[in-house]
Structures are given as C-alpha cells and as structure tokens.
C-alpha cells in the first residue's frame, strides 16, 4: 500500500497582483512517480519551489512524513531529503562535474579543505549507477550534453539519499535519445524507493513513467488521477479546456 510522504494543504502563493497558486491540496506517496502537467504559467514551478524551500507559501501548510514542516530555505528541504532539479538548471557550468555534484555540501576536513579525491570517486560512482557514461569527473559541466547535465543534477539527488526528487521539465530541449536517458533515470529513482515529481509539457514522456498525473491550471488542481485510468488524449483535453475556461 502507498505510504504518505508529503501532504500539502490549502497552499496559496501570490506574486504582487498575480495569484500563482490558490488553495492547492495534494498528497505525494513514497516511491511514487507523479507527473505534474499544465499550461505555461499554471503554477507548476511555483508549487515545487515552495516544496523545495525556494519560495515560502503565503498560506496553507506542508506535512512531511505526517509532521508539519516549514521550509524557509532550500537547505531545510534538502535536510529532509527533498532534492530539486530546477527548470533553469541548477548547475555551475564553469565547475567540474564532481564540484557540481557536491556544490554547497563539499565533504571537507576540519579546516574546510575539500576531499577532492572522495568527491571525484563518489560522483563517478553515482553517475555510473545512473547508467551515465562520463569520461572523467574533472570535465567542466559546460562541455556536457543536455542529457548528461540532467544526469549530473540527478546524481546529486541520489548521492545525498533523497526521499523525494523533483524534476522541473528535465526533458526540455533534449534529443530523443537524451529524453530516453532521463526517463531511465526516473525509473532508477523509483526502483530505489524514491518519490519523484516530474513536471513536463510532453504528455508522452510522462505517461511512460508516471504512476499518477496531476493537472494544474491557473494555480488550481484540475485533476489528480492514476495513469492507468487515463490517456494522453483525456489529459490534453483537460489541459486545453481548463486553460480555455479561464479565458472565457
């Protein structure tokens, strides 16, 4: 049976005059892949930025493993085991792979001197675990392909024992082969018992990996269904109609 990991209750968020989210209620379970879809500006990124502590909600509450939590900084969410791969990739292109994997959490001795050898070995290990072929952890991230970059960002989540990994449009601007790689990463995470929230505009991508689908429109949850009870056609219909509904 599914076990609850994160529950959000009546979460609202405004940016000035724009209401990005209104009274959103959702539950995410352990080892479950949830696809979060919806038109541009629906509030998907805002929602996951609240879950990951990048934004704070104006109203409502978050419950992590049944306990009420308040994430005021990304650090707080990460300490709980929530790792986020942002739409605007959270990688520093001028740094090496190893230094990116450990960015902000560099293993170091008492004086703060980094354990570079450990960083290189461990990042190689997780990347291989994801099935990513990388020549050397010394490579600069700016020289990697889009799929490889997503791999590096996901490797970070894996290494730090995440319980939940959030992917904001991880397949955007990727080639067909790279998309397959990323979807394979998602399967790997699920097999390791990690919950995944996967944001995308491509319903075909999400149908192949998600257990459940949530449609957001104008900051509200329109639908929340199990993937097997739905189809790509149904979902695109809902997305289009809910957006049109707002325009009328």
């Amino acid at each position: 049976m599914s076990e609850e990991l994160l529950r959000i209750e009546k979460v609202g968020k405004r940016f000035g005059k724009i209401t990005a989210l209104q009274e959103v209620n959702l539950t995410f379970n352990k080892a479950e892949v949830v696809g979060l879809v919806g038109d541009n500006g629906a509030g998907k990124s805002t929602l996951i930025k609240i879950i990951s502590g990048y934004h704070t909600a104006d109203s409502g509450s978050l419950y992590w493993e049944g306990k009420k939590v308040r994430f005021r900084l990304p650090k707080h969410a990460r300490n709980m085991g929530i790792e986020t791969v942002y739409q605007e990739q959270a990688l520093a292109p001028d740094l090496t792979i190893a230094r990116n994997v450990f960015m902000g959490r560099e293993p170091s001795n008492a004086l703060g001197i980094m354990q570079e050898k450990l960083m290189e070995e461990e990042s190689m290990k997780v990347l291989r675990g994801l099935g990513l072929r990388i020549k050397s952890p010394d490579q600069l991230v700016k020289k990697l392909s889009g799929g490889q970059r997503q791999g590096v960002a996901i490797a970070r989540a894996l290494y730090f024992d995440a319980k939940m990994v959030i992917l904001d449009e991880p397949t955007i601007a990727l080639s067909v082969k790279e998309v397959r790689e990323v979807l394979e990463f998602v399967n790997q995470l699920k097999q390791k018992g990690i919950a995944v929230i996967f944001i995308t505009h491509n319903l075909h991508h999400i149908f192949s990996v998600a257990d459940r689908l949530v449609v957001l429109a104008n900051g509200e949850v329109m639908t929340d269904v199990r993937t097997e009870n739905s189809s790509v056609e149904d979902m695109s219909d809902i997305i289009v109609k809910s957006t049109l509904g707002a325009l009328v």
Partner: peptide
Amino acid sequence: NWIYAVGSNQDAARAM
C-alpha cells in the same frame, strides 16, 4: 568552490 559557484551561476549556488 562557493566563490566559483556564485560567479558561474548564482541562482544554482543559492538553490544548492
């Protein structure tokens, strides 16, 4: 490493 991260992608550094 933080100095380079901030200079290379400040938002990424903050998010991490």
